[in-house]
Design a protein around this nucleic acid. Structure first.
Length: 250
DNA sequence: AAAACACTCAACCGCCTATGT
DNA sequence: TACATAGGCGGTTGAGTGTTT
C-alpha cells in the first residue's frame, strides 16, 4: 500500500505524521487543505491530509461499536437518504462517514443477505426477532432549484416521473411553512417533495417513493407531527444544513 | 502449530460540484 | 464562457488481524 510514486507518500500514517498534521490544524484551523502539506511539512497530498484529519485525528470522534440507538437511526436515515454517508454521519455525533459506510457494508449488508436466505427457508421466526429486513431506499433525486433562489425557483420535472415542468412553489419563505399541515406541503402534482438536496436544491419524491415515506408519516396525523417526532427531525435539519442555515427546533 | 479463510477499517481513487480567474 | 483548482463524496481496495479448520 505504501509508496512514493509521484513523490507523494501513500499508505498508513505514522505517529510523527499524525502529530505534524494535528499541530498544523491546531495552528491554522481546518480547511485550505492544499496548503496543509506545505505548512505541516508532510509529504502527503491534500486529500490524504483531509481524510486523515476528518476520519481519525479530529477531536470528538467516537470509536468502538455502534449503539442500538445509533444503528436504529442509521437504518432510518439510510432508508430515507440511501448511501449518503456524510449526511447520515452528520446525524450520528462523533461518527464519520467512513465509519458509517464501513459499518453498513460489513454489518448491514450481511443482514440483508441472511434475510434473503431466511426468506427462502421461510421459518417461523417473527419479523421482530429478525430485527431487520432489506428496505427500499428512498433515493431523492435533486431537482434544479439552486441556492440562488431556493424559494422562488421551480421544481424541474423529470421525464421519468412525468411531472409537468416548472411547478412553481409560490412560497416566499418555504421553511417558515415547512411545519404546516402535510396537505399543503406534500402535494405537487401527485408528488411528495421535501427540501433537502444539497445547496438548497429541492428534492422531489414521486408517488412510489412517497408511499415509503408514508411509513414515517403513519404514526403522525400531520406533517407537523411527523417532522417534530424523533428521529424524523433530521429531515428539516438536513435541509437547513444544506442551505447553510442554523436550525433549532426549540 | 500452521495454513486457510473471513472480517475490519484505514486509505486511495475517480468523479462531481463549487468557486475563482 | 471556458478553464483550472480545491473541496467533498461514495465506491473500492488491500494490509492487518482474528477465527476456523
Amino acid at each position: 500500500m505504501e509508496g512514493t510514486l509521484s513523490g507523494v507518500r501513500k499508505g498508513a500514517w505514522s505517529q510523527t505524521e499524525d502529530d505534524l498534521l494535528r499541530e498544523c490544524v491546531q495552528l491554522y484551523g481546518e480547511g485550505k487543505w492544499h496548503l496543509v502539506p506545505g505548512r505541516a511539512g508532510l509529504n502527503r497530498c491534500r486529500k490524504s491530509c483531509r481524510l486523515r484529519w476528518l476520519n481519525y485525528l479530529k477531536p470528538n470522534i467516537k470509536r468502538g461499536d455502534f449503539g442500538e440507538d445509533e444503528i436504529d437511526l442509521m437504518i432510518r436515515l439510510h432508508k430515507l437518504l440511501g448511501n449518503r454517508w456524510s449526511l447520515i454521519a452528520g446525524r450520528l455525533p462523533g461518527r464519520t462517514s467512513n465509519d458509517v459506510k464501513n459499518y453498513w457494508n460489513t454489518n448491514m449488508r450481511r443482514k440483508v443477505h441472511s434475510h434473503n436466505k431466511d426468506d427462502k427457508n421461510k421459518n417461523n421466526v417473527k419479523e421482530s426477532e429478525t430485527c431487520w429486513k432489506p428496505h427500499q431506499v428512498i433515493k431523492p433525486v435533486p431537482r434544479a432549484l439552486r441556492k440562488a433562489s431556493p424559494v422562488q425557483g421551480k421544481v424541474m420535472s423529470s421525464s421519468k416521473v412525468g411531472v409537468s415542468e416548472g411547478v412553481s412553489l409560490g412560497c416566499e419563505n418555504w421553511w417558515e411553512t415547512l411545519l404546516d399541515e402535510k396537505e399543503e406541503n406534500t402535494a405537487v402534482d401527485n408528488m411528495i417533495w421535501f427540501p433537502g438536496a444539497k445547496d438548497g436544491a429541492f428534492e422531489v419524491w414521486d408517488e412510489e417513493l412517497g408511499s415509503i415515506a408514508s411509513d414515517f408519516l403513519a404514526e403522525a396525523q400531520t406533517l407537523t407531527d411527523f417532522l417534530l417526532s424523533q428521529p424524523s427531525t433530521f429531515v428539516i435539519s438536513v435541509a437547513f444544513d444544506s442551505m447553510g442555515r442554523d436550525f433549532n427546533l426549540s
